[in-house]
Amino acid sequence: MKTLYTWMLAGCLLTIPISCQAKNDRNAELAIKTEKTLEIYTSKTDPDTKNIQVALLLDTSNSMDGLIDQAKAQLWEIVNELSYAKCGHYEIKLQIALYEYGNDRLPSQEGYIRQVLPFSDDLDEISKELFALTTNGGNEYCGKVINTSINQLDWKKDNDHLKLIFIAGNEPFTQGPLDYKDAAIDAKEKDITINTIFCGNYTQGINTKWKDGANLTNGEYSAIDHNKETIHIATPYDDIILQLNRRLNNTYIYYGNEGSKKISLQAEQDRNARSYSDANAVSRAISKSSGFYKNKSWDLVDAAEDESFEIEEVVKEELPIELKEKSSKELKQYIVQKSKERKEIQDEIQNLNKKRLAYIKKNSKKDGANLEAALIKAIKTQGQRKSFSWEK
């Protein structure tokens, strides 16, 4: 006689016959294996989420100071534009990876390439790494850095996600030990689209194969003036948004052994954004009011949104000094209060941003020849193929 053990796996019933005479440890072993299978499945598949994965490959050779400057100055506007993405009922998650290449300070045996940051949704960390980039003369191997990013990064296996590489530089696309055409074949097999941004004359970029590098995966080719200074439009709403950002920062409750460092990093990236202009600091504040800015690894308000989070497991010694003596009940009440405050402030920032965008649209001439414009155009074009849309 046999007993049927049944589990639900990936929407299907999994029925396994087990002998009634089997030992208890065999049953336990089977249960553990099945549990592990379920864990592997659920870790790889989130049916309610669509990811936008963007790998930025930036040339950091001597001539690229302007490109890096644009990346720093335009990061938050890029994030803001992506935050308006919609795809049916799905939650949209943004992950950004960062590579630098073509810099003499990088290891020659690696092809003058460095993974600055793997895929991350930590926007403060992304900003920190961007601001730490410096330039130095070198050899720019486009095929090699593309291939490296394809093999090193944790790309989603499901082709419903938006998986994009953006490579920017100004030397011939053909340089280096690995043919860019071979890298494009690898990308296409994994449903990754390569977009190329040539820093210089449009025709020169075509002649040096940058356009061909994009065409091979149906990506976008753009040519930009990388030395052009980013123009930020000041609006009547900026001062109010900056004031709200200061209030927003006060809703964060750090915890854990890295918590105090992370909240300091948040303040540091506020200062970095403001170093370009108040308008850029405003763009960052708007990013912080979006769904992409989540910090559950160090902030109790974001962490408490996770059903598996247990406040009792928080080490009291790793909390701000004014919270160390609070009971778990008092701490929960404090988190609820700060969560409510944050939601109200974020809503207010978003409402003001609608007015800000209308003002900018009315008072500016959009310059399409910069890094931000090239990225957004490509992402929206390719996102539409995956049923993504953008609504403000």
Rank of each mutant, 00 (worst) to 15 (best):
K209E: 10
A214K: 00
K365R: 14
A273L: 01
A71T: 11
I360V: 15
A281E: 06
W76D: 01
I167E: 09
Y41W: 12
A183N: 01
L13P: 03
T208F: 14
I206Q: 08
D48L: 01
L30W: 01
A369K: 13
A303I: 08
N351W: 02
D46R: 06
D186Q: 12
F119V: 05
K392W: 14
T196C: 13
K190P: 00
R114G: 02
E81L: 15
K354E: 14
D299I: 03
L265G: 15
L106M: 07
I78Q: 03
R114Y: 01
S149H: 02
I16A: 11
S108V: 15
S43Y: 06
E313Y: 05
G66K: 03
I92P: 00
E312Q: 12
I253E: 02
H89G: 04
Y252L: 13
E39P: 01
K209D: 15
D270W: 03
S275I: 12
Q70R: 05
G213Y: 04
D160S: 11
Q266W: 04
Y84M: 10
I185D: 13
E229M: 15
S339I: 13
G259C: 07
Q346A: 07
N227I: 14
T174R: 11
I241N: 00
G137P: 02
A303Y: 04
N139R: 07
S264P: 08
A132Q: 13
Q243E: 15
M1C: 15
Y237D: 04
W210Y: 07
A373P: 14
D182F: 03
T381G: 06
S328A: 11
Q337P: 03
L82P: 00
S289Q: 06
I40Q: 13
A168P: 11
I52S: 01
K23Q: 14
T34P: 00
S290K: 05
D25T: 15
N151Y: 09
A285Q: 05
L242M: 10
K343T: 10
V282T: 08
E81N: 07
K262V: 06
A378Q: 07
L153D: 01
N80C: 10
N24A: 10
N136H: 12
T6Y: 05
V145F: 00
I167D: 05
V315W: 11
E35P: 00
I263T: 10
T235E: 08
L323P: 00
S108Q: 08
P47M: 03
T6F: 05
F292E: 00
N295G: 07
K324I: 10
N24P: 08
N272G: 02
V301F: 12
K365W: 11
S127E: 11
N207W: 06
Y180G: 02
Y180K: 02
E348C: 04
N353L: 09
I197K: 02
P236Q: 10
T235R: 04
T6A: 09
K209T: 03
G219Q: 07
G256Y: 04
T193R: 09
P118H: 00
T42L: 07
M1D: 14
K261L: 09
M8F: 14
D69E: 12
E77P: 06
T174M: 03
K163T: 03
P47T: 02
K316I: 06
T193D: 07
S387R: 13
D121N: 12
R247T: 05
K33V: 08
S19D: 12
A85T: 04
L123S: 07
K365F: 07
P107E: 08
V315L: 08
T3M: 08
K33A: 12
N272H: 11
I126N: 04
L13K: 02
Q21L: 13
D179A: 09
